[in-house]
Design a protein around this nucleic acid. Sequence first.
DNA 1: TAGATTGTTAATCGATTAACAATC
DNA 2: TAGATTGTTAATCGATTAACAATC
Lengths: 224, 224
Amino acid sequence: MNKAKSDSLAAKLAPKAVIGRVCLYLRQLEQYHRQGEKRISSEELGTPLSIKDAQVRKDLACFGQFGHPGVGYQVDDLIQALRHVIGIDHDWPLALVGVGNLGRALLGYRGFRARGFKIVAVLDADPAKVGLRVQKHLVEPMDSVFEIVAERKIALALLCVPADVAQPTAEKLVAAGISGILNFAPTPLHLPPEIGLVDVDLGVQLENLAYKVQQARSNQTTAT
Amino acid sequence: MNKAKSDSLAAKLAPKAVIGRVCLYLRQLEQYHRQGEKRISSEELGTPLSIKDAQVRKDLACFGQFGHPGVGYQVDDLIQALRHVIGIDHDWPLALVGVGNLGRALLGYRGFRARGFKIVAVLDADPAKVGLRVQKHLVEPMDSVFEIVAERKIALALLCVPADVAQPTAEKLVAAGISGILNFAPTPLHLPPEIGLVDVDLGVQLENLAYKVQQARSNQTTAT
DNA sequence: TAGATTGTTAATCGATTAACAATC
DNA sequence: TAGATTGTTAATCGATTAACAATC
């Protein structure tokens, strides 16, 4: 009885690395679609992304059977299927919290809208910012978070507040009923496990890059 | 003779997952430092980050011996050591390429500066933008990239151009002598292997979050 | 039919966790 | 000394790659 935990009705949850790749597949498929391709093989899908064909098939197998042996995959069908898998076959209303530099930037970022993510509320705790209009969005007070989240059925939040208030702000969002947070603050958040959390720490990304470059350099020097 | 490839002089390159965590350790250490802590154990370092103590020690072991059995790690020493490991014990001059919404945002983002990354050039291919001042930075023409990169010894670039020009722009940067690119464009880049590349695709991050939330919901429904 | 390509099982590889002797 | 905690080796776990029978 110990093992069979989640094998019942609930879909076996895909290894998290898989989802990252599925998003890439979707991009690539959409590109093929624009180019008018009707059918593709796992190799044609993976290669431009530097992913092996076997990996592509294995990843897709997590969610069902989408292809036909000897034939490949129908581009438009697979796009639809993957959109459903990720959960972006419908719109997601978003709240953006914290209208600093980064928050302002994200308001203007087109990449979200194009994929069904729609910012329907912009919140800030600073009274000086409340009432302003930024990129056509009205900044509303953080104190109204409870009513706003409920009324507009907001499930996801972009958290762009300074690190020192990130934790309490996140807790407020959770209390208001939000289900997931994209955290741009450079600090780890501790939230209930049922809340979705993805960290986007630009400083960390840049440090990763610095390390890679440094390595490449030292290898250059030591190499024959 | 087949195996001993990189065991010689060149440091055995750390598993890439390790570097991501090392950046987190550094954050945590800096926080302890601000709090006045002098010494910490691997458990005290890992726990706030939800990382096991054994993992912390294993990660650090990739780069040398930093602790003392029975005692732990000296906070300030470890900070210095890790900064050196990542390669941020000195400043990195940065070029920001593409002054769209996201580019503007990143110009105002304080997180970079605080960690030794300093934007010393802002480039754009659009003549209408060249000559503008954004956040005190003068926008210079993309065509001057060769002289600018050389003169200001720029090693890293933040690529914030639209997806359709990302690849040619990246190639131009490489030709100009850049060693690493932080790619914000939602498209995979194909560059020579010696060029460092880190992708930051906000759309993909948000899709990851959507998937998590969707899963949590369906589990809620199916659970007893 | 012959050639292509899937879904899936088995083999390999790498990363995480546990355990413990060595050491302060 | 006794208690704490490291660095490291062995055991476990998960993810990637290779191989191939099944199928169009």
